[in-house]
Amino acid sequence: MNAQMWVGVRERVQALAGTPGAVQVFGFHGHGFRLEDPLTPQELAALEERLGVRLPEDYRAFLLHVGAGGAGPAYGVFPVQRGEDGEWEWDGDGGDMASLDRMTELFPVDRPREEALAAHESECPDEDDFDDPDAYDAAYEAWDERDPLWSDDLTVGAICLCHLGCALRRWLVVSGPDRGRMWDDRRADGIDLQPMSNADGSPMTFADWYLTWLEEAERQARDTVATH
């Protein structure tokens, strides 16, 4: 079933590259509707062995039948590949935020309480309290490093798959009760990660996220051509 949902998707994405209206789709100048080659079954097996988890079925089928990454929502899906050192990595702005050694840990659906976040904010150093600019910078850096929103403990069991610009990102949960669900990361705006949902309120899976984007990109490209 998961393989079936991706039948023809690679061809649809590639067809968009030659559509005059495609240039109007957000992210076009970043990915140009190009897709990486799919992973081989052997490569996928090696990746999952490294992570210690089986990836969500729709995402693993995407990797096998559509591509290892490339064209997709916003600036595209981070390609998963082996780096020069032979280690697997998701290549993109934030792709290295995922801790490969902690993929088996359960992604925390219970997030930091507002009180904890407010308490941290209240401890922010005031520059007016420092005579030495260097001392202020050191105090601020130490405070910033304690920010509970940016603790690696909050993203264990998840993969960073996409960025929207301005340090805003999307994550796919691979371990825990929300396995297979997409989460929205707006910590750059001081907002904790939030689970993503479809229009009907159901949890948004990787396939929901990607195929909704593809349908919208096709519609936008088509409508742009029709109005010119």
Rank of each mutant, 00 (worst) to 15 (best):
L64Y: 07
A217W: 01
G18T: 13
D128N: 12
D132W: 12
G52Q: 03
M182Y: 00
V25N: 03
G95C: 03
R186T: 11
G86V: 12
Q14E: 15
Q4Y: 02
E36W: 10
Y210G: 02
P133E: 06
M204V: 03
E89T: 09
W90A: 01
L39K: 00
L44M: 10
E87W: 08
S99I: 14
R34L: 11
E89Q: 15
D223W: 13
E57N: 10
C124F: 06
S122M: 09
V23R: 15
G21A: 12
L172H: 05
D144C: 10
D132V: 09
L164Y: 06
L51P: 00
S151W: 08
Y59S: 01
P73F: 03
F107Q: 00
F130V: 04
W90E: 03
G157I: 09
T19E: 13
P177Y: 07
G201T: 12
G18E: 12
E57C: 05
L211V: 13
R113I: 06
S202I: 12
M196A: 14
R179L: 07
R113L: 14
E115A: 15
W143N: 02
C162M: 11
H228Y: 10
D184N: 14
L16G: 03
Q194P: 02
L149Q: 06
R181L: 07
L117E: 06
A46Y: 00
D152N: 10
G95Q: 03
R146N: 08
W171L: 13
V225H: 06
V53A: 01
Y59E: 04
G94W: 03
D91L: 10
G92N: 05
D128A: 14
E57T: 11
M1Y: 06
A142F: 04
F107Y: 15
P148E: 04
G190C: 12
M204N: 04
D128Q: 12
D153A: 15
A98W: 02
W183A: 06
E105R: 15
H29C: 01
S197R: 15
A158P: 02
L211K: 04
P108D: 08
F107R: 00
G18P: 02
N198Q: 14
E141H: 09
G8A: 10
F33L: 10
E215L: 13
D178C: 12
D152K: 11
R54D: 07
W6K: 04
L47H: 03
E145H: 11
A46I: 07
F28N: 09
D189F: 13
H120D: 05
E141N: 07
S197H: 15
W6V: 05
D126V: 10
E141R: 10
E87H: 13
R50F: 00
G176C: 11
R169D: 02
Q220L: 14
A68H: 05
Q24M: 12
F130R: 01
P41R: 00
P108N: 08
L106H: 12
V156N: 00
Q194W: 08
Q81V: 13
C160W: 03
L44Q: 01
P133W: 13
F78M: 07
W213K: 04
W183Q: 00
D147W: 02
G8R: 11
